[in-house]
Design a protein around this nucleic acid. Structure first.
Lengths: 209, 209
DNA sequence: ATAATTCTGTACACTTGTGTCCAATATTTA
DNA sequence: TAAATATTGGACACAAGTGTACAGAATTAT
């Protein structure tokens, strides 16, 4: 049974947050299809019976794991840029951090979302759609941010900011994916550099990340 | 047994090429882990016993399927550009064709190689390494091509051509991946446009693809 | 103390996947 | 025709995965 509210009882001995965290780490490394319910329960350090008691199954845990991933992903900071705030410094710092994190990961796992978009969109209707939403959200946020940055005179776009936003999301997914093959932080950063210069960011703004 | 050379015998009733082609289509749609040996034999339209007779297993078929994919992938044309030949027209035409193909695919499968890099690199050592080689090869070819294009005065690079090559491969992988979510050809093309303008390709060279 | 609730560990039934094997049949070359 | 080779279709053994069930122990609130 799932938890019911009522009189007291034995409390869960595991932290649900910790369990989801461990599940997320596993999905991150092995993808969705590469993980079984057994693997999950093992990684979450709970019995398989507890697993089925407390969670609806692999797909449900995956949903929660993705949410958890979004909380710790380097690009979460882009969602927190407010209106009126400077965009470029945060953008540059975020990309720097992303390169650092991807290169520092000894397992070269790349990005959980990107990996699973490749794996699940068009394969699993439900999970694929959920992941598409994450990408759509990133697109929406970037449209707002690039419009804002241009309006604030932070850079001189050579094409429509909506086009830049789309190119940025594509660039970001490519960077995450290629980071599984290109392992040197400096080379990953050079990709960011090339992209940023290309969309009109000034050289001077790149080093102050 | 695998085929032995000797006196004649009953010839294989199926075309090995067709079988690999069908296997490739299946891997393209469902990924590697999403496909079982049964699925494979079914798709290849051969008995499961014939499957094990004629192929070493799923992984071996996958290897052949990847090679087949490389033969039909839009970016194969980039490998055929000779020394002294103009690079940009082919590059632009290739990207146009890529956008067209990705948008025209009703199943939104993206790129088989990119999908499987996301799925397998770091997960399956053998297959992952083989896919990494494909990416490394693309990197090598692009280094040569961008150096050639710059030397031939086809465009004015603002950063080192090696950096552009790296950024291009990343861009290409991102485009393939995002094409699973962004389905309109015009939007995919706008991503290419933004990238090409960014690395210094002249506006005039974009429309003559 | 009692009821409520959860965990543990094991067990079970069922499905799916893997790889092998075989006898019968079909087709080609020598 | 005989030898060689392939396919067919079914069967088998085995491993792995899924989801459920249950009895006993543990812990909490009332």
């Amino acid at each position: 049974m799932t938890a019911k509210r009522g009189a007291g009882g034995r409390p869960a001995s595991f932290s649900r947050d910790d369990a989801i965290e461990r599940a997320m780490q596993l999905f991150w490394r092995d993808g969705y299809l590469g993980v079984t319910a057994r693997d999950l329960a093992d990684a979450m350090q709970i019995q398989r019976s507890s697993f089925y008691n407390s969670f609806a199954g692999k797909a449900a845990v995956f949903d929660e794991a993705v949410q958890r991933y979004l909380d710790i992903a380097p690009d979460r900071r882009l969602d927190e840029i407010g209106t009126g705030e400077a965009v470029l410094p945060v953008l540059v710092a975020t990309l720097r951090e992303l390169c650092r994190a991807r290169a520092a990961d000894p397992q070269a796992r790349g990005c959980l979302v990107c990996n699973c978009v490749a794996e699940l969109v068009g394969v699993d209707a439900g999970l694929g759609a959920a992941l598409e939403l994450v990408i759509e959200h990133r697109l929406q946020v970037m449209r707002r941010l690039f419009a804002q940055a241009a309006a604030q005179g932070e850079f001189a776009p050579r094409v429509a900011t909506d086009d830049i936003a789309r190119a940025f999301v594509s660039f970001l997914m490519g960077l995450n994916l290629v980071s599984k093959v290109i392992r040197a932080e400096a080379e990953l950063w050079s990709i960011c550099r090339t992209f940023l210069l290309g969309i009109g960011v000034a050289e001077a703004d790149l080093d102050r990340g």
